[in-house]
Write a protein that binds this DNA or RNA. Structure first.
Length: 557
DNA sequence: AAACGATGGAACC
DNA sequence: TGGTTCCCCTCGTT
């Protein structure tokens, strides 16, 4: 399908200085005649040209060496700077630069428009070079590990209808999300500023943002397994905190920069965080390749930090195996994911190193048996290892999926559906957009990791920003999304309703948090007369205060 | 409506 | 190894 062309888009302006010879102005340009030559022409300064030319003529003798500026309106591709084509949005469709490798699968010769991986159904899957389930031993493992796993593939319930939202809950982009372990309606969110949001998405106005838990990027959080009123958080300010959710008071358990700022090269940041319940250890990783330990009960550092990834590189993710908590999975910027045995942990002694094409954003054991591994790498591939006891040299599957690195976005991470007993469903936001009825939307993809099939793509015309952060509820059919500064809740479509009814009553509630004096909420406000939730963000942004319950539901459309 | 800027990682030397 | 340069679907603000 050919993209709609936008009628009169202003071409880029290139200013060239030239020497006297007027003829030369016409020589430099005729590259861009090809497709829409109509509006790509070159103009040598005309409007003022009239006047100035006369003046020049008057004083022609003197100013012979003048250097006229020629403004040529050339279309230049913003990607490769070449002419004759132009990358970018044409309406809601993005046109790739044909000179660059495919933005999706990274192979040259085609663009995303024609990429076979774009239509996701199984085209994305690079089959395993070697199956792990061929050996007798593997069958034993399979039978032991997956004894309770349904052999028949279950139908997945996909929460694909927008249920509630808080627009601009945070003042910077959302970096992580977590559902409360016991209270089904509480969603926690961290942001780039280090703030912590707490939202009861059933009583939508119940939201709080604690401003001073951290000073910069809240990278990960984990509930305290012995007290679910408290939360461990790790941040780029180099601290790890245990925060009381009622009061917002934080206990700083670790500070890697006790002497303050000592230059970028020395500033330590904390990224990965997980808890080994068997050893009562909180595990934290930093941006220099090290893993730290903290005793969960005494809240004291224990042992010495261990180098688990290339020195000087970020260790962005940690995950303890759900069945064998002493098995630790780590991943980082050195392009590796590694499995470690916490009982015999020392630098270089990983049980296994899994190589990736680029930075590994996340690596997770499967939620029930812990026998699978799911990783997200910046090479636009999701990798799955089907059995950690098999040969881990190469992944069992690679699924091409658009989740590139962009420094302005939170890194994408594919996550398992914790409710899926077959351990096959994963969720991840998509970077590249699709033209949905004239709107460019970035869906959230549900992928069957056994086949690479796209089970569902979740989107809504009111969610126009990219959604890199997604979390599936551990018990309910609920999806939480962090997109830019906003938080969204999705639920499954009610079966009783017809398509038409759904459209008629888009019931979800949107709340807007805006700092005083800021504009921008207009679109979401209209049709509604109660504005009293606007501006109350002050109230809900204060550390230690409960939110003012002033927000009212707003229908959109 | 266009311009701007914040600012991570990789490729290059 | 370290400094420099470049960069493709952002997003919110001016």
């Amino acid at each position: 399908m050919p993209p709609q062309t936008r009628g009169s888009r202003l071409p880029k302006i290139v200013i060239e200085r030239q020497f006297e010879s007027e003829e030369s102005s016409s020589e430099s340009e005729p590259e861009n005649e090809e497709d829409d030559g109509g509006d790509s022409e070159m103009l040598s300064e005309e409007e003022n040209g009239g006047k100035e030319e006369e003046e020049m003529d008057v004083e022609k003798g003197k100013r012979k060496e003048k250097k006229p500026i020629t403004i040529s309106l050339k279309k230049v591709c913003k990607v490769c700077k070449g002419t004759g084509h132009e990358a970018g949005f044409k309406g809601a469709t993005y046109i790739d630069c044909p000179k660059k490798p495919c933005f999706l699968c990274k192979t040259p010769g085609h663009t995303t428009m024609t990429c076979p991986h774009r239509v996701a159904t199984e085209h994305g899957v690079v089959p395993a070079p070697r199956r792990n389930t061929q050996k007798p031993l593997d069958y034993v493992f399979e039978r032991q590990l997956r004894a309770n796993i349904p052999a028949i593939k279950l139908g997945h319930v996909v929460p694909d209808q927008l249920g509630a939202a808080v627009i601009r809950l945070h003042s910077r982009r959302v970096t992580c999300l977590e559902f409360h372990p016991t209270n089904n309606n509480i969603l926690l969110s961290g942001d780039k500023k280090g703030q912590l949001g707490i939202w009861d998405f059933c009583k939508v106005n119940e939201r709080t943002v604690y401003e001073s838990v951290h000073r910069i990027i809240l990278n990960s959080m984990k509930f305290n397994p012995v007290n679910d009123g408290t939360l461990f958080t790790a941040a780029s300010d180099g601290t790890m905190c245990l925060t009381d959710l009622e009061t917002g008071i934080s206990d700083r358990l670790m500070d890697l920069n006790p002497n303050g700022w000592n230059g970028v090269a020395n500033w330590r940041m904390l990224y990965g965080l997980d808890i080994c319940w068997e050893k009562n250890l909180v595990l934290i990783s930093d941006n220099f390749g090290y893993l730290y330990f903290l005793d969960q009960r005494s809240k004291k550092k224990v042992g010495e930090p261990v180098l688990i990834h290339k020195k000087g590189t970020k260790v962005v993710g940690l995950h303890c195996n759900p069945l064998q908590p002493e098995l630790l999975l780590s991943c980082g910027n050195d392009h590796f994911a590694r499995i470690w045995d916490l009982r015999r942990l020392e630098a270089g002694a990983s049980l296994c190193s899994m190589s990736h094409g680029r930075v590994v954003n996340s690596a997770y054991f499967s939620p029930h048996t812990g026998s699978k591994i799911l990783t997200t790498s910046q090479d636009n591939r999701i990798r799955i290892w089907d059995c950690i006891f098999g040969n881990l040299e190469t992944p069992s599957r690679e699924i091409v999926h658009s989740h590139d690195f962009n420094r302005h976005l939170t890194c994408f991470r594919a996550e398992w559906d914790p409710k899926d007993l077959s351990e096959s469903l994963a969720v991840i936001g998509r970077y590249i957009s699709e033209n949905y009825d004239g709107v460019a939307l970035h869906p959230i993809d549900f992928i069957d990791t056994n086949t690479g099939q796209l089970v569902a793509e979740v989107m809504d015309p009111d969610v126009k920003t990219i959604s890199p952060v997604n979390k599936l509820h551990p018990r309910e059919d609920v999806l939480a999304t962090g997109s830019s500064r906003s938080v969204f809740i999705w639920r499954p479509k009610e079966k009783s309703k017809t398509e038409h009814e759904e459209v008629e009553e888009r019931k979800y509630k949107i709340f807007v948090c805006v700092k005083e004096g800021k504009k921008g909420q207009k679109k979401l406000e209209d049709g509604s007369d109660d504005d009293d939730d606007i501006g109350d963000s002050d109230g809900c942004h204060k550390k230690g205060k409960r939110p003012k319950s002033s927000g009212k539901g707003k229908k959109v459309r």
